[in-house]
Simulated assay, not measured.
Amino acid sequence: MSPRKFFVGGNFKMNGTIKSIKAIVDNLNQANLDSNVEVVVAPPALYLLLVRDSLKAQIEVAAQNVYDQPDGAFTGEISAHQLGDSNITWTILGHSERRTLLGESDAVVSSKTKYALDNGLGVIWCCGETLEQREASLTVAVVTGQLASLKETLGTDAAAWAKVVIAYEPIWAIGTGKVATTEQAQEVHAAIRNWLSDKVSPAVAEATRILYGGSVNEKNCKDLAKQADIDGFLVGGASLKPGFVEIVNCNL
């Protein structure tokens, strides 16, 4: 058995209303969730406090972004201090939708990650390749290049890496219904772990949880979860549905 605690994150993205999010929270509050799984949900910023105030303490709450500066004149942003003050303990960073749609570079993502970690947040740090990169056999090069930027910022500080959960999300599988085969996913996860061992430390590689994301649902999660280097999931659309509970409980 892996010493790494299984982790399931739910990224609501820009979805939900007060009514629908209350329904999601009610479903999670009533569910019997596997106590061996760390569960974190990430609603839109507008609903962070609603979720944190009404969701059972067993489940943590994440922001979908955070700025890399202290409180101040940064219109539209949210600070690590404000998240901590609101008992929001995690943030998602580096998601491909922000990298591609908003132009966040590896350097920007790394800077945000370090600032979040330095200010007490855990980080779900995302990486992944496009379909064109996959077809050109560049997957590992792309993902390890993204990791190299993070390592340049964090160095080999085991305490910092301990608060990072890596989410491998092939861009071609996000929201498309296409899922990497179990073999494809495991191959990339193993490459990430090997890179961490070589470039950071074997101890960090062994301890770091690596999640799979990309059209994960209650039908495909069990087979993916059996892979040696898949330590959980970052779930998108399926986290808005009752079947999210089945994903959390996929190891039962």
Rank of each mutant, 00 (worst) to 15 (best):
E135H: 11
E132T: 13
T91D: 06
E104C: 00
T113C: 14
N119I: 09
G94E: 04
L121P: 00
E97N: 11
C126D: 09
A116W: 10
Q133S: 06
R134H: 08
V123A: 14
R134K: 13
L121I: 03
L101R: 11
L102H: 14
V123L: 12
A136F: 10
R134D: 03
I88E: 02
S110T: 13
A136W: 10
I92K: 01
E97P: 00
I88W: 02
S137W: 00
N119V: 09
L93G: 03
E97C: 06
K114C: 08
W90Q: 11
V109H: 08
I92G: 05
L117S: 11
H95M: 04
H95Q: 06
T91V: 15
S96T: 08
T130S: 15
V123P: 04
L101D: 13
C126V: 11
S137C: 10
R99V: 08
T91W: 02
L121A: 06
L102P: 00
L102W: 06
Y115M: 05
C126Y: 06
T100P: 00
T100K: 06
V109T: 15
V109Q: 09
T89Y: 04
W90I: 09
T89W: 00
R99N: 08
G94P: 02
R134C: 00
L121M: 04
H95D: 06
E132A: 15
